[in-house]
Amino acid sequence: MGKIYCILFLSFSVAFGAWGNGNYVFGSAGPEFCIETPHPGIGSAGNKKNKIADMPVLSPSDLPGALISRSDVYVGGALWGLINGAADLYYEYGFDRMALQEIELEGENLRLELYRMECPVGAYGIFSVSVHGCAEGGPASTGYCINRFQYQLYSGNYYLSIINYSGSDKAREISLLAAELLSNRISGPLAGLPGMFNKQPVAGYTDNIRLIRGIIGVRNVIPGLAHLFETIDDFEIWHLGFEDDAGQQEIMLVKSRGSQPLPEAGAVAEGMSMAGYAARETGGQVVAVMSAGFARSNELLDSIFISP
């Protein structure tokens, strides 16, 4: 999205370089780290037909009898033209380009949005904040989420959303077929979760993890903390909320992606307005645990904390 991006991505590259040595645990097929780079299409008008060739999309032969009434690719700042201010959130996660297709088959209408992000972690991030109440699937454990009107999945650098307009069984069936066709073309290494989320007792709740980037993400997901992050440019928050026998608990891993200092650990925890918190700040990251009592929070923090 213009010159601003160029400045931004240079700083990303520096910040990301350290991730491979931190407490990130990627899937076995995953890269040690992914560098977000300036998008080659940004700053030039490009050619829509060439751009769409760069994206895995469905063709009429994939779905015999289907009418593909729309096939567009949105590159760089063009996403703004499609979804206006909602685009800002995608840019925070390293938006590269998006293919939009509208398909009619057997009287059912589908809208396919395939987002390519610059890194798998960005694809996971936008997926994690876009799913809710999955009737089938689980965000982190399966990589997909199915609801009556929507099928969402992430794979490699891609986040896919298929919306059907009727919610009928037939529409869901066609959505599933379209998703299968596309998922075969977008496979790639999955982003892993920070290692602390693989430890007990939180490992069973990973479907609740959301990756929040940027102030807009904070305002959306944890608005009570927005005031702490308004002036910080580059950061991300891994947020997990869950409930077990000890009651409601929240864990946040706040990581700096730039040079600005993070909010103090205590301030992060206090912002969650829970009874007891424990927090640790080290190596450019803050881990905060909130629960109904200090003792439980400290215990949980001891269990999951990994020194960077």
Binding site: G2, G76, G77, A78, W80
Partner: peptide, 12 residues
């Protein structure tokens, strides 16, 4: 202010 690329300018 913010600079817009050719894709974005028609919408801004």
């Amino acid at each position: 202010e913010m600079e817009y690329d050719d894709y974005m300018l028609p919408f801004m």
